[in-house]
Structures are given as structure tokens and as C-alpha cells.
């Protein structure tokens, strides 16, 4: 019995670890896509900020400095995407693809510049586990939920906050409106361009948190290509969660759980590869199932040009 409980606790903790970076990136993707800008560059945004965070933490020895550099890098790359998509009306898919490539090539290049070779950085300062007294003593779920990195607590906080911002503030209303009927936002005297810039910028910083979690929490170093498709899984979570912060978080947890369970108990029963397919298959099913009805923001991917 106790063994089972321990295992459950471990699975829960591992689910959270798997899901946290996905949730950050999915929340980021949501801001961008709710404003009407497709962001398939989440993978690249996470990757570059994971690297920038590691560099900042390495040279300062301070995780918070790393966090700041990561946020800066995420923002910078997101702004490239924003300038391309919003100002230059570039194709958003291509721009996103380019962002991914830029991050892949950029991290590879800068690894050599900063650390002399590719591969993995030296160990860097990272966010230690923080035990919350009292709560962490709850059996089973206590250690799983409340003995985690600071970033996980930030995630607990950001999910409801994001929900609040998107659905309960004027900013959120304007953001959603920009992604649905930009003309309506324009005639209401609000700048669609500005709203979309905000959306994409926020996506960069939130994806950066996901990247930081990878290089400064899950690991204490940056490894080339360490995002390993997580940006795309986050995209899947975003779609599966129907562009809703709570939904996306639940989807990310579901994906994280599937992985955790396989790792712990079912590796022999279900091949790992099939578990890894799971988020993608679910996303396709959801997209096809909702087919006729538009579940994505209806102006998603369309550049807006004033008359």
C-alpha cells in the first residue's frame, strides 16, 4: 500500500516536471494566437531562452540573472517574429519556422563562441527545490506539489493569472477581439497592431520561462536541442486545450502524466514511442472532430492591414 502511494507521489511529481515547461510555452502561445498571430516558433523561443538563461546564470552565478537574460532573449526573438508577421506581413508559418531555425543555429553557434564547443554547457546556477513548510507535509501530494522549483510555483500562479488577464480585463478583451475580428477592434479605436505586438511579446517571455525551467531547474545546464519538440507539444496542448489557459494547462498535465506513467510502470507494456505520439494524435482528433466549427481564433494567421 505504502509502496503504491509512494509510486503515485512520484508519478505526480514527474507529471508536474514534464508539464511545467509545456504549460509556460502553451500560455505564451495562447497570448500570441489569441491576438491573431500563429506561433509555431515556440520551440525556438524556448530553446534560445534556455540557452540565454544558462549563459546568464553561468557568468553571474545567479539564477535570477539567468532568468532575466532568458526573458530578454525570449522577448527579442518574439519581437523578430512580431516585426516580420505584423509589420512586414510575412507569412506567419514561415516566420515561425525561421525563428525555430534561428534558435537552433544561434544556440549551436553561440555554444562554440561562449564555451568553445557544442554539446552541453558547464553546470550553471539554477533554481533549487523549495519546500513549502506545512503543505509539503501532506501525504503523497505534499512532496509532489510543494517541494518543487520556484518556477513551478510561478506556474501555479500564472495559470489563473493568465485566465484572469485574458477573460477578465479590458486588455484580454481587446486581445481576443484582435484575433477574432480585427476590423471590429480597429473601428472601436484600439490599435490591432499594438495588441498583436503585446500578444507576441508575451509569448516570448512565457516561452522563456519554459526554457529556463529546462536549463535551470530540470537540469542545471544547457544542452543543444534540449527542447526536443516540447514547443510543438505545447502547441498541441494549446490546441487541445482550445486556446484556453486552463484547458491548455490540463492538456499539458495530461501529456505529462502519460509520459510519467510510461516511464514508471508501463514501459514494457506500451512502447515509449507510442506514448510520445499521444499528444499529437489527440490534437489531430480534436482538430478533425471540431472540423466545421471554428475553434481557433478566426483571424489567426491573417495579417491585418487597415483600409
Amino acid at each position: 500500500m505504502e509502496e503504491t502511494l509512494t509510486a503515485l507521489g512520484a508519478i505526480l511529481a514527474s507529471t508536474l516536471r514534464n508539464a511545467t515547461p509545456l504549460i509556460f510555452a502553451a500560455l505564451g502561445g495562447m497570448f500570441s494566437e489569441r491576438s491573431g498571430v500563429v506561433n509555431i516558433g515556440l520551440e525556438g523561443l524556448m530553446l534560445i531562452s534556455a540557452f540565454a538563461g544558462a549563459v546568464g546564470a553561468f557568468y553571474s552565478g545567479n539564477a535570477l540573472v539567468g532568468l532575466a537574460t532568458a526573458l530578454g532573449a525570449g522577448l527579442l526573438f518574439a519581437l523578430i517574429h512580431a516585426v516580420m508577421c505584423i509589420t512586414f506581413e510575412a507569412d506567419q508559418i514561415i516566420s515561425g519556422t525561421a525563428i525555430n531555425l534561428l534558435a537552433l543555429g544561434g544556440t549551436g553557434f553561440l555554444m562554440v563562441v561562449f564555451f568553445g564547443s557544442g554539446g552541453t554547457t558547464p553546470r550553471v546556477a539554477s533554481f533549487e527545490l523549495v519546500r513549502i513548510p506545512g503543505l509539503a507535509d501532506i501525504p503523497v501530494i505534499g512532496p509532489a506539489l510543494f517541494e518543487q522549483s520556484l518556477l513551478v510555483y510561478l506556474m501555479y500562479f500564472l495559470v489563473p493569472l493568465t485566465f484572469f488577464v485574458v477573460f477578465r480585463t479590458p486588455f484580454g478583451l481587446r486581445l481576443r477581439a484582435s484575433g477574432e475580428v480585427p476590423e471590429a477592434v480597429d473601428t472601436a479605436g484600439v490599435s490591432v497592431t499594438r495588441m498583436r505586438y503585446y500578444g507576441v511579446a508575451l509569448s516570448g517571455m512565457l516561452a522563456a520561462l519554459g526554457g529556463v525551467y529546462l536549463s535551470m531547474s530540470l537540469l542545471s545546464a544547457f544542452t543543444e536541442g534540449m527542447t526536443n519538440g516540447r514547443g510543438f507539444i505545447a502547441l498541441a496542448a494549446l490546441i487541445f486545450g482550445r486556446w484556453n489557459p486552463i484547458g491548455a494547462a490540463v492538456a499539458a498535465l495530461l501529456f505529462g502524466l502519460a509520459q510519467a506513467v510510461t516511464f514508471r510502470v508501463a514501459q514494457d507494456v506500451i512502447p515509449l514511442e507510442f506514448v510520445q505520439m499521444f499528444p499529437y494524435i489527440l490534437t489531430i482528433v480534436v482538430l478533425a472532430g471540431f472540423g466545421g466549427r471554428a475553434i481557433a481564433p478566426s483571424a489567426l494567421g491573417k495579417p491585418y492591414r487597415k483600409e
Partner: peptide, 13 residues
């Protein structure tokens, strides 16, 4: 790879 990314960005803008 960086060059490729830049080319992509330029070609589509």
C-alpha cells in the same frame, strides 16, 4: 542554419 533562417525571413517578408 542562422543564414538559412535569415534567408527564410527575407524571402517571405
Amino acid at each position: 542554419v542562422v543564414l538559412l533562417a535569415v534567408i527564410l525571413l527575407l524571402v517571405t517578408a
